[in-house]
Structures are given as structure tokens and as C-alpha cells.
Write a protein that binds this DNA or RNA. Sequence first.
RNA 1: GCCGAAGUGGUGGAAUGGUAGACACGCCGGACUCAAAAUCCGGUGCCCUCAAAAAGCGUGUGGGUUCGAGUCCCACCUUCGGUACCA
Length: 924
Amino acid sequence: MDYSIDLIQNIERKWNQKWKDSNLYKVTENPKLPKYYVLDMFPYPSGSGLHVGHPLGYVASDIISRFKRLQGFNVLHPMGFDAFGLPAEQYAIETGQHPAVTTEKNINYFREQLSRMGFCYDWSREVKTCDPNYYKWTQWIFTQLFKSWYNPFTNKSEKIESLIAILNEEGTTRLFALDKCQVLIDAATWKNYDVAAREKLLMQFRLAYLDYADIWWCEMLGTVLANDEVKDGVSERGGHPVEKIKMRQWFLRITEFADRLLEGLNRVDFSESMKEMQRNWIGKSEGALVKFNVADADEVIEIFTTRPDTIFGATFMVLAPEHELVEKITTAEKRIAIEEYIKYVKSRSERDRMSEVKKVTGEFTGAYALNPFNGKSIPIYIAEYVLAGYGTGAIMAVPSNDDRDFAFAQKFDLQVIPVVDQSAYPQVSREDKIGVMINSDMLTGLEVKAAIQKMLSAIEEKGIGKRRVNYRLRDAGFSRQRYWGEPFPVYYENDVPHLLEDNELPLLLPQVESYKPAGAAKSPLSGITDWVNFAPGKMRETDTMPGYAGSSWYFYRYMDVHNDQFFASREKIDYWQDVDLYIGGTEHAVGHLLYSRMWNKFLFDIGLVAKDEPFKRLVNQGMIQGVSKIVYRVNGTNLFVTKSEKHNYEVTELRVATFLVKDDILDVEAFKNWRSDFSEAEFILEEGKYICGSEAEKMSKSKHNTVNPDDVINEYGADCFRMYEMFLGPIDAGKPWDTKGITGVQGFLRKLWRLFIDEQGQLRITNEAPTTAELKLMHKTIKKAGEDIEKLSFNTAVSAFMICVNELQSAKCYKREILEQLLILVAPFAPYITEELWEKCGQTDAVHVQSWPKYDATYLTESNFNYPVSINGKVRANIELPLDMEENDIRETVLGLESVVKWTEGKAPKKVIIVKGRIVNVVL
RNA sequence: GCCGAAGUGGUGGAAUGGUAGACACGCCGGACUCAAAAUCCGGUGCCCUCAAAAAGCGUGUGGGUUCGAGUCCCACCUUCGGUACCA
């Protein structure tokens, strides 16, 4: 009986059914066992199904789950779907199909694909973020955020009532002093506030709050656009003009958690690069707020700077074009130019503005500011490189010590006053905080670091500013003018927001006629007037929540997924605590991870969860890229030119389905039939063939380069697919998908099978006692596999299995004692074949509930070592010596070697380096 | 632009600062077969050579540290991910 694809499919069907029937993977809380929680970043169920990139992380987490279970842990390993999102809605706009319908269809397909791969998910715990039973609790957590504030005195989130108590007691005096409040009022004033005024003040503290922010609006498409959908200042679909418009929206006050998000990174096991990205994203910097008076006006410009020492080199100021003072200070003769410039900036994305280096743009307002230290009058510009959201949206520009300020000064012919003498440090740049102050009044002669400190004190003494810690991190925009998301459990009365009661949750997403926005940048929900105006004088919030709302807390729902009283019971949370291993892509390095860490800290503060960091260990899997195949169409024609001739024509690159291409040769007939617009295509060939270009890039439906794991499984089976994904390389490395090497893994599985089953299909297992060599091999493999799995080095674990099986085959070892242990080692990687062979060996319980074997170190100790002998670092000889040989004896022996004498020519070497059990290096 | 990562044979990759290329794919040769597939055995970094030995070269590029560097340091090049409303 050959290990053929028919047999493989029978085995996989059989065990899928058996495992399901026996509830093998169902997990319950068991206080007698140590817990281990392995989490995958749940997928967005796109219309094109799972591709081969998804399972890379899923296979890895599945191996760890099975490994930990074999080691005696009670393992929680769930799966679910991040089911709200833009693509489903875009599809709805185009086809009129309800996103709930298409999403459900996609989820069913994803689940089916996942099930085939033999993952040990406890499917009874499945989570779907678009399920009302789930988003009820997303809405509920939002209401808790709204009802809470961040108490800077206790440094944690608290109910808003504790803020009200402080306001009743002392007004905003201490909060104002701490820079946590813009208005200074006493308790009496607070108490005299009416409801609206009180609400307005509280809104400055709530963790979920209303404020204004820009969104992309495309009049032609009639929709709000995501940043992703805007390319080069126009809509990606159709190339229509877009503009930014200001809208009132919800925000989450993540900035209050900035320090704790930074601190928590010291206590988690994430890669250093991941932590670094998060630290840089938070971007803590210390500096000062400084006020500059506007000349001949009552206005004051407040700036933030990390270089207060360079204030004497400030030769101009720059405001963000959106800055509220721009309108007030612009002079009459400059008004038109300024308005033109603002219009230009409105068409620019923030990323374009930040990354623009070739073209320096800006506009003079006509107004001047006064340097608070020397009274010098300096011009005020607006420029796109100053962003409204960072610091105060205004800077003092010091061209001598800032690259962008310098470029700006060059372009607009502004003065550059050197204020730091860096001549003693030829290697440093103008932005490095090093050197001696010059041209700087009382700072002259000081080192930069001392000058910064002196200036900070001077600013505070003068009363023109104060020390300030600034963060690059901004509060998180939490509103989308979209349909397919969680509705806010909020209504407005006289424009004041109110929450629905807990017993009114979930607020269901209503049916709409059209998925397009209702009028100017309003959510589709605003078109349902009777839903919006649900009671006299009350209007519902019509925006919905963003994609990351549901994904910020889903890992708790898995712990207690069917609870209809609470998001998860404290009892279950106390058992499972936190995620021991979280696997997902680097693309979520900052966004999702910061948001979910913040939500978690909030839930922790209000006493609902057990740990203040949710993810103990995080591992990023690499991205499997697709290989896109490219044809070149001569512009304005239906003529396609082969790769080597394309440079002779003006061509457009088109991506074609990969199944039309074999070894870079296009099947031209199949291509003509592929899409009707190509049916009349003509070709310019080379040597009778049309050769395509190729490019490795992100797998996506639109690039026609996705590879469906179903196809691979149909041909090789799930075990082979799983092992091959792991064998491809380290888990964190990305690479283009290629099935070229899969036959190697297929061969391994066949050999494994044949160790148990002979050519006649008979079990060939014997009860003979293993030899020392066989035991040595086995224990070496147990050790290597265990260590590699722990390190998530699955590719090397697979190669250890290959070595083991190759050697057992050569030795014709069919011994039960050896082979049954091998099955347990391989079981996490290839759950089907190992289970089948385990059963064939006469075992009655599952291989997956056995115990991971322990290795015996006595089999692994060696007495000799084959030393490489190098001369000046190059290996010239080898010699086997006992490991306990004295260094002097090694030296003597090595120097006596004929091949060494040849190099030393009888002379005494300068030095002989002996590293026991490693190497001997003779230095001449 | 900024932040992060990666770059090793024809290919995927392996390698606590200590024999570069484990394990696979591919390729070459052989066995089995009427033949093919499958399977098994042997070889395979480059260069020189009929072949082998011996030498030389070799981990993106250029420098450096070290007895010894794929690994550590500096500069650069290329590719990938993120860049706040794709998920």
C-alpha cells in the first residue's frame, strides 16, 4: 500500500471526522493543569479566500499548541474572524449585496479551508466581530471608555465620577497646573456650569471623546475614502479629485497611556525591532512650550521645541497651514496667496507632506513674530512640512540646526544664524545635540546639553513657556463614515452626546437602501431618518466604529465566548489570564498592537481583567509573497510584446493570472480566452514564445497572484502542506511562494510511512530492542526537535526529522520503541499521518494526547572531537582527539602533523589558540 | 522622507565570534525496468584540470575590530513591511 494521494485524502477525511466526533480539541478550564494560550491574529475574511501566506503563522501556532499539549499544558487555541471592514462594504456598493451576506459566505469558506489543514482549534469558541452577540460588548466597552477618564494623580483610568469629585472640590486648579486641562476654573465656577458647559469640560477628559478631524471626501465617487484609496492626490478608483474636510468624530485618548505603553514594553517578550517600532511610534520627546508674540497684534503663537537652546538661531516661524491663527494673522495682501496654498495642502496626504524632499513649499503670511529673548522680528510662514497634529502645529525654525528648516531657508532666502559650533566634531550633523553654543547671549560658551537645561529654566522664569513632554503618538480616530462597522451606542440631545443604557445593547446595525454615504461625507446610516430620529429631540450617532474596535479585545472573548451576561467572566479570565504566545504579521506592529494594549490597560484599570499586558510573547511571521506574471501591452493598442522586446515600445504592464503562465511562457490562446477584452489580442514573440515578466509582491486578488492552499492540499495533502510551509525557512522571514521544493517533504512523509508499512501494506513494526546507535539518534532528535520548537525554529526541526528518518531507513530500523517516539515528535507538524500510523501500531488513544518524550543526555555525550586545525584562520587539516586531552598535548600533536609542518616549515608559531571541543588555530 | 527588517551556491535555506553551504529542490551519473514513473545508490559553491590532488576565490558593496567575521562596528546599495481610515 503506497502512501498515495488517494490514501492521504482518505486518512485526512477519516481523522477530521473522528477528531470532530470525539471533541478532541475542545478545551475546558482545568485548574489542575497549567494553562497555555496560543493566539493567531484572526484573519479578515476577504472574498478571495485564504491564500498560502495565511497558514504560515497558523501552522506555527498549531505546532506550538500541540507541542505544549504534549508537554502537559491545558492549551487554549481559538480562531475567529475580523469581519467588519472596507472591502465588504466596497463590494456592497458595487453589487448591492449586503455585507453581512458576503461576509458570512467568506467566513464559511475560510473556516472550511482552515478545517482541512488539521488545526487543533476549538471551533466552539469561534468569534466573529460582526456578530451582534460580539459587538454588543465592543459597544459596551466603548460606553465604559466614555464614562471614564485618565486620572493623572493615580495614573490610571477611573470612572468620570472621580473627576467630578475633584472638580467639585478644587475646580481644575491642579489639573491645569499639570497641563491636563486647557481651562482654569475654581470649584464654584464648575458648580455654576449648566449641563452643556459641564459636558463640554468633561469631554476634555473622557477616554472616548468628540473632536474634529479631517477626512478624505470624493465628490465624484460620493464616498469618504481611506488613505489607502487615495493615490497621488486623486482617488485610486477612477482618478477623481479628493479633498479633506473637517468633521466631528470620536477619538480614544490613547495618548494618556503613552508612558505606560512604553514602560510595558520592558516586560514583554517581543522582538527588539518590534519594541523599537512601537517606541518610535509613541515618540516621546522632552522639550518646551514657548510663546512668541505676533508683532502688532494680540495673538500669541505657542510652539513646541526639543531644542530650546537654539532659540537665538530662530530666524522664522512656520505654522501648519491648518493652524487656527493663520486666518487671523495673514495680512490683506497675502490673503489670496495663502488661501491658494492652503487649497494645495488640502489635496496632499500627510504622508506626501512628510516625505516631500525634492520640492520645498510654503507661503509667507505677511505677519511677523517677536523672539521672546531678543525681541527680534521674524517672518511667519505656513508650510506643509509642519503638521497640525504634532506638538502645537507651529515651530520656531532654526535653519542652522534643522535640515528641513535649512532647506526652507535656502528656498525662501531666509537668514541662517549659526548658534552651535560643531567644528570639534567633524562627523556630526547639524541636528545632533552636540557642540558649543555661539551667538546666543547668555548661552554662548555652554555645551548644548547644558544650554538646553539653562534655557528651560530661563523660559519658565520669564513666564513665556514651560517644560513639556511631547509624544508623536496621537489620539486614535474612532469614527468612520461607513456602514459596515459597529454602530455607536450614542444619541445626541441638543448636540450633547448620551449613551444608550446597558440593557439597550447591542444597538443593531440597521438595514439601509444604499451603502453609499448619504450626502456630504455622511455615513450611509444618516440616510435612515426614522432610525436616526428614533425619539423626539434625539438623534443617533450615524458614524460607525473602525476595524480595530473589534480586534482590540477579541482575545478575551475566546475565553468565554458564549457569555451573554458579560464580555467574559472574571473567573475564566483569571484562569486564562493572558496570551502566552501571539503570532501574526509585522504589518500589525504598531496599529493593532498599540490599540489592543491600550484597551487592555483600560480594562485592567477598571478591574475587569487580570494582567496589564495582554501578550506575553509575540512572534511575527514573514509575509509570503505572490509571484505576479506581467505582460506588456503597447499603449493604445491590443498588441502585446514579449519581455525582451518591450524596451522598443511604449508599454503598460498588466498582471495576468498565474495559471496562464508556465516557466514564464504565456499560453497565448488561454490568455485570449481569459478575458473578453483580450480575445482579439495580438503578440510580438521571441523565438516563437511570449515571455512574461515577473515580480514578487503582496498576494492579492487584484494582482492575480494568489495561491490557494486548497490546490496544494489536493495534490499533496495537508500534512505535506503544513510541513512544507515550515520547511521553507525561518518563521519570521518573508519570501515568494514557490512549490518547487515540496517534493522533498513529500518524500520525507513517504519514507516515514514506509518505516511502518512494507511494500505489501503490512505493518512491519517489531518489538526488538534498539541498538545504542539507534537510541543515540533518537535522543539527539528528541533534544533537537524540542529545542527548535521552543525557539520556533521549525525549518531546522523538520530537517532533524528528515535526518532521523533517513538514518532509520538506512539502518532498516523498524523497532516500536524508536518509531512510536518518532511519531509523537512529528505529530505536531503532521497530525494526520502520525495519528494513522499510531493507530496502525495498535494504539487506541490519540497520538496527540501522549507525552512529549524526554531525552537522556547520557546517549549524547561524546569522548572524541574531530578538531579542525587552521593556520592563520584557514583550515588546513583535521585531527580526531579525545575531548579530555590536555592543551599542551593537543598543541604537541597538532604541531607534529605533517600537513601543519608543511606550513610552519619547522619554525615555531607565534601563537597556538586552542578552544576545547571547537578548533585549533596556529598563528604564524 | 522617517521607523523597522532582510541580502549566503542554479533555488529555499543551515551555521553559541571557531571546519560556510546542514537539510531539501534542481542538475549530473548509476541501479531496478522492454520502457517510463516511482524508488534506491553516488556526485554537485566558483575557478583551474581530461580527471584528481594541491592551491586560489567565495556570505549585497567598501572599510574596520579580532588569532579567527556570514555573525561585531562604520558608511553605502538593493528589496520588503509600516507610515495613523487596507486589514
